[in-house]
């Protein structure tokens, strides 16, 4: 069973996504902020991260930088899931940080997220 760590401060959004992923055979863990997310990476040992961009405290770029500073985590695949329009950030520049795809929270279907995560660990 593949493991996904969901880092999202919107608890209800994370719950809804986690339930759907669980039904699709994923093992899930939710962290509400960057600090807890970084801690959960060691404990939960995820295969992939589903990461919100705007988080309280340190936001997604801080997590991306933190992961790059650890050689064993630098290749951890990441899928961004955010309400920020994709035109607001440069996905190509984020690929070197392990970001495989960026999903729009407002328009993605629950199965899109499962597919993007599966593609990310392929």
């Amino acid at each position: 069973m593949s493991k996904v760590l969901i880092i999202d401060d919107d608890r209800w959004f994370a719950d809804a996504i986690a339930k759907n992923l669980h039904q699709n055979g994923w093992q899930t863990h939710i962290s509400p902020n960057a600090a807890k997310g970084i801690g959960a990476i060691d404990d939960f040992d995820p295969d992939v991260l589903l990461l919100d961009v705007m988080l309280p405290g340190s936001s997604a770029p801080a997590i991306l930088n933190e992961l790059q500073s650890h050689t064993d985590l630098a290749d951890l695949p990441i899928v961004l899931c955010t309400s920020i329009q994709s035109s607001e950030f440069d996905l190509d520049s984020l690929k070197s940080y392990g970001v495989r795809e960026a999903l729009d929270k407002a328009h993605s279907e629950p199965d899109d997220i499962a597919k993007a995560l599966a593609n990310a660990i392929d």
Partner: peptide
């Protein structure tokens, strides 16, 4: 936009 996206996701997820 965030609350609209949230409501949409919860509604879609609740199908099952």
């Amino acid at each position: 936009k965030a609350p609209l996206a949230l409501m949409r996701q919860i509604a879609m997820a609740s199908e099952h």
